[in-house]
Simulated assay, not measured.
Amino acid sequence: MPGWEGIWPVAPTPFLDSGEVDYDGMRRVLDCMVDQGSTGICILANFSEQFLLSDEERERLTRLSLEHVAGRLPVIVTISHFATPIAVARAQLAHDLGAAAVMMMAPYHGALLKGTAEQTFEQFRAVGQVGIPIMVQDAPLSGVDLPVPLLVRMAREIEAVKLFKIECPQAAAKLRALIAEGGDAIEAPMDGEEAITLLADLDAGATGSMTSASITDRIKPILTDWAAGRRDEATAGYARILPFVNHENRQCGFRAAKALMVEGGVIGSEFCRHPIAPLHPDTRRMAIDLARPLDPIVLRWGK
């Protein structure tokens, strides 16, 4: 099993200008992420536009990604679905193809159809029977409250539940409470949301981060410095990247990584499927302008 510390960026899903999935581009995305020095890679997450993909495309991308990475890095496959049998089937496919773990949100469908605490526990328990480590994604998108006692219960009673990506409001406070109450059962507390709260989350005990694939190589040293006790260096490093991270998180979302990858020759198009609008040219320009002084690998990988 891999160590879960470090940086686990989310792979964007590239499309052609026609709107079809760019499968060759996906291979280039994965190669770039390996070259960025990623600890591992997460696919089919919200920043992968998983909600804009068909089931057939999801399965093909799962197979392609695990076959192409070919053990160079561990891969986490996102499997969230409201229906427990579908989540279980997705977990089984990921397990059979050699994924390191799966990631899932609580069951939800829209604003009003949400799993209760017990239904959420039951879904995670069912997926846990597949025998692959599970990352709990505590994300605002689901609209489902995952209180610390529920997360601790899952960690203690479901052997597969090992990882916790906390990206709810006041994430640091929740991470601190989760670690304090869960103890050794909380194997891998992680930061999310493009590292917008990274320092606070590290201070609260996070041991890893799941960011976008934009500037992985510039965020990773912050984690390394913090883990080594070099807090001044970590803080200075975070100050350098924060203008870009803030712009990505607040203005661009998953479209930033695609813009940088097009700029750097990794992929040929930053197309997003309707109803997602393209970045405004000025917003895109600022993303590139803020990233360029950092000289990330993504901006020169394909040139």
Rank of each mutant, 00 (worst) to 15 (best):
Met1Tyr: 14
Trp4His: 11
Glu5Tyr: 15
Ile7Arg: 01
Ile7Gly: 02
Trp8Gly: 03
Trp8Met: 03
Pro9Lys: 03
Pro12Leu: 08
Asp24Ser: 11
Val29Arg: 01
Ser38Pro: 04
Ser38Trp: 02
Glu49Lys: 09
Leu52Glu: 11
Thr62Met: 14
Arg63Gly: 06
Leu64Gly: 15
Val69Leu: 05
Arg72Pro: 01
Val75Asn: 02
Val75Trp: 03
Ala83Leu: 12
Ala83Pro: 15
Arg90Val: 02
Leu93His: 02
His95Ala: 07
Met104Leu: 12
Thr116Tyr: 07
Gln119Ser: 12
Thr120Met: 09
Gln123Lys: 07
Gly128Arg: 11
Gly128Val: 10
Gln129Gly: 10
Gln129Lys: 14
Leu146Thr: 08
Met154Phe: 01
Ala155Lys: 02
Glu157Ile: 04
Lys162Gly: 14
Ile166Gln: 09
Ala171Gln: 10
Ala172Ser: 08
Glu187Ser: 08
Ala188Pro: 14
Gly192Arg: 02
Gly192Gln: 03
Gly192Cys: 07
Ile196Gln: 07
Ala204Leu: 06
Ala204Arg: 04
Thr207Lys: 05
Thr207Trp: 06
Gly208Ala: 11
Ser212Leu: 14
Ser212Asp: 15
Arg218Phe: 03
Arg218Ser: 05
Ala234Ile: 05
Arg240His: 09
Leu242Thr: 05
Leu242Phe: 10
Pro243Tyr: 05
Asn246Glu: 15
Gly253Asn: 04
Ala256Cys: 12
Leu260Phe: 08
Glu263Thr: 09
Ile276Arg: 15
Thr283Lys: 08
Arg285Gly: 03
Met286Asp: 12
Ile288Val: 13
Arg292Ile: 05
Pro293Leu: 05
